[in-house]
Design a protein around this nucleic acid. Sequence first.
DNA 1: CACGGATCTGATACTCGGTATCAAATTGAG
DNA 2: CTCAATTTGATACCGAGTATCAGATCCGTG
Lengths: 207, 207
Amino acid sequence: MTETARTAAESAGKPPGLRERMRATVRAEVVDVAHRLFTEQGFDRTTVDQIAAEVGLSRASLFRYFGTKEQIVLGRLEESGRLIAEALAARPDDERPWEALRRSFDVLTRRNEQAPEQALTYLRMLQETPSLRAGHHEKQLIWQGLLVPEIARRLGVSPDRPEDTRPSALAAAALACLDVASTGWVACEGTVPLAELLDRAMGALSE
Amino acid sequence: MTETARTAAESAGKPPGLRERMRATVRAEVVDVAHRLFTEQGFDRTTVDQIAAEVGLSRASLFRYFGTKEQIVLGRLEESGRLIAEALAARPDDERPWEALRRSFDVLTRRNEQAPEQALTYLRMLQETPSLRAGHHEKQLIWQGLLVPEIARRLGVSPDRPEDTRPSALAAAALACLDVASTGWVACEGTVPLAELLDRAMGALSE
DNA sequence: CACGGATCTGATACTCGGTATCAAATTGAG
DNA sequence: CTCAATTTGATACCGAGTATCAGATCCGTG
């Protein structure tokens, strides 16, 4: 629904259908192969044709699974956004928005603690490759869009009022802190816990 | 120095030299022509060949003046970053970092007030074109890099300590607020002053 | 002024990401 | 089984960006 090319019988039909399952497995394998190649040779030095050939797919078909090369890498961020938004909605109503945002990021810090090595190489690639940095920021804008309504609700602000910049500002600033913390985490090679860097970052803004 | 292709005798020699002046003139004309075409037909629907032809330059030479198509648009942001950094350095030492950041952005809000129509179309293009949004964010990261040392100084923090995320967090969050305010300003078609939107945005974070 | 090295230019050819099209193959429902 | 919908690969195309190279232009020096 977001931007991935979809089939006609998408999120509607109850029976998963053999076709849909095949599609999912192929997608997964593309992601696997591509990630291996990316970490081996770097994102830019890996061509789409190479990935397609390795998976045993035609170039054209690969582009039907993933609209762009970036999406192969950034696809998983879609889910992360939903998770953060859900976590935020689950925070108690009387919690201060800033604190609620901080806590909603724990779904990410926890995941990183569980597979630090993997997260480290993934984030490193994301930060070292300019085109991926750009795409990552686009995703963050989507995350921001997911978080803003809940922040607005907690602030008692009507959602679609572009002249009240407070909800967007809180969400955008929190995500900026998350980025700063992630960058620092990669720079430290993961020696300092991400949660701690994030605490310091967001703490600097709550006085 | 940043990324624009430069000549050997760059920022060193005292005499401007005819060659350098010509270069500057051509650069300026390219920017003019390109901006006209971009606003007329949109960034994506304008090809580099079209710009080159209109300026009377070969495609190859155009790429010697501007390494990428984006740089034709984003070039001016370089200067803005320097201006903000200078304004920040000029703020009184006892001012709170957040307030100092807010005030350093006035160099931008003032400029927008002086030529609102022009700023509006420029920002609109920047926000509506995905590839430009990406490039714009890259520039903001550079701005962040310019601001961080001064923030660190005011906080009494050694600059190159990636584990202390506070200076970066303050700079990144402030720039995020600036983005939010700019987006709102464009959405409002400039009816609400940018400075006011920015006050609200950054005010939401200082409590 | 003339020369010679450094620089700029245009032309050409190339790589790579992404789009469009079309006929053949595959699937799944009736 | 059959037929319509979908998927696939092949091909051709477009635009951004890079590399190369020969010719033109500039500029300091003798």
